[in-house]
Design a binder for these strands. Sequence first.
DNA 1: GCTATCCTACTACATCTGTAGGAGAAGTCA
DNA 2: TGACTTCTCCTACAGATGTAGTAGGATAGC
Lengths: 135, 135
Amino acid sequence: MADRQYDLGDAELEVLKVLWDEGPGTVRDVLSKLHDAGRRVAYTTVQTLLTRLEQKRFVTSNKTGLAYVYRARVSRDRVTRTRLESLLSQLYDGAAGPLVLQLVRSERLTGEEIEELQRLIEHYERDTGDAGSNI
Amino acid sequence: MADRQYDLGDAELEVLKVLWDEGPGTVRDVLSKLHDAGRRVAYTTVQTLLTRLEQKRFVTSNKTGLAYVYRARVSRDRVTRTRLESLLSQLYDGAAGPLVLQLVRSERLTGEEIEELQRLIEHYERDTGDAGSNI
DNA sequence: GCTATCCTACTACATCTGTAGGAGAAGTCA
DNA sequence: TGACTTCTCCTACAGATGTAGTAGGATAGC
């Protein structure tokens, strides 16, 4: 009963995001933020979610005064990568290329992002000597 | 009870992928493919999954001889896009750019994909007059 | 000290999802 | 026609997840 495993549910992720965005906070802090964002949810729901996140080791807590303060234990980047990997393996057999191309074709990158992309590609081509194999 | 809604579970997606890859097929066809792929699962499990997929309107069926033949009703592309959008909105606030950059930085694109990307970017820059705003 | 407030702990419950068994109809083969 | 095989239909169940109520301890203001 002590530990849960598996992945993050949507509601859990939402709570975790608040901790990423706002830094450590209590149940009430998180609840306020969620309410601000228009999310109607009960205090005890947030509490349950934070408890489960702790059981899954995504957050830690320590009692400060009256209430527990929760703190994210995994980085946004780490979770992002895991979810992304999961999407890639589920839908693209793990290949990143098709996904990138699909996204770029959808023309939703900003000018700056395109520039950054351009730089990355130049960098890549310098390293590998223009287009080559990927083995 | 007639209709289910919500999204696809992992097991459901696996079954749907078989239909995408192999074309329409019966429970047994799908089961064989899954077994070939090393997936140990019972006949009735596949049956249940196909039934649920039909309730969710991801597949249709029609009785052909003895058994029902199931056929994907939504394209791989459509489902892919939906899942991707969901990931984007959950983790990147809907912005595609950061995800693309992260993927390209992970250096998992083939030479060909990089070239294709290069072409897309050139195309983009021709259209918009080099780097510009994204409004 | 009392009372309103806030917090935690525990419990509950519905739905979704993965997984599968059993009953019974239908077709196949000897 | 009887024994298999193969299907569908219905039912079941456990774990994950979202959501929240209740009980009871701690705190703070009056």
